[in-house]
Amino acid sequence: MRRIIVCIKQVPETDKIGIKQEKGTLIRENIENIMNPYDKNALEEALIIKDKFDAEVIVITMGPPQAVDVLKEAISMGADEGVLINDEAFSGSDTLATSKVLAAAINKIADYSIIFCGQKAIDGGTAQVGPQIAELLNLPQVTNVKDIKIKGNKLEIVKATEDGAYLLETETPILLTTTTEINNPRSPTMMGINKAYGENGNKRISILSGKDLNINPKEVGLEGSPTNIYDFCMSKKSKTSEMIEGNKAKEKASILINKLSELNYI
């Protein structure tokens, strides 16, 4: 294991965002931007490998200048370097355009063994960027990884599925997306915080623009994004209740069990 690249994203803390019911708009006041929690599992897995095999861990993110915060947080946790990919031309990029930018940056960094991505982001929730990067880089990929064992040059991977798991053996280089059950992300230590925010902290961060990556501005941003959002609306929550009639508790309970069973709840 030489170099591991982890793609991370800065997202609004969506679980603290309220929604104005009447208009369906977001209440963004006092909402902080955080590292996408799913990406922390990806980073942690990279750091576990770093601890064992002394690999170099580079975190990359595409975003506005303030996205440097998540790179520094990642360095506090133990990453070696951070790369911010920032360009006005990127704003409005959908998952495809974003994947193109990240793939170009990964190509430039080069010499990697594993690329880790989180399963999805808590804001968009598409789970598309990881797989698209792999396709663009012509790399093998395994999504929803819940366990990794490194055996020489080979990886033994457990991929979670809805009703079970696959045990796979693969080689590097490869792109992996992680589940939340794969590990418990570590907290930053003060040693890491000093590394990220101390005098030399900024030397660990590099910034790349579209020009640095030879990206055609027409292929990214709004223009390069085939996804269009026509409208969005609030999901309707409705509650209905049904009283179960019967003479005895036992009878009512068996009716309830039948109903729950019909609905596949039990």
Binding site: D69, K72, S76, S187, P188, M190, I193, A196, Y197, G198
Partner: peptide, 15 residues
């Protein structure tokens, strides 16, 4: 607060 202090606060709060 500087960035480092903000990170220390966040880290302590998470803990």
């Amino acid at each position: 607060f500087n960035e480092k202090q903000k990170m220390i606060i966040k880290n302590a709060r998470d803990l």
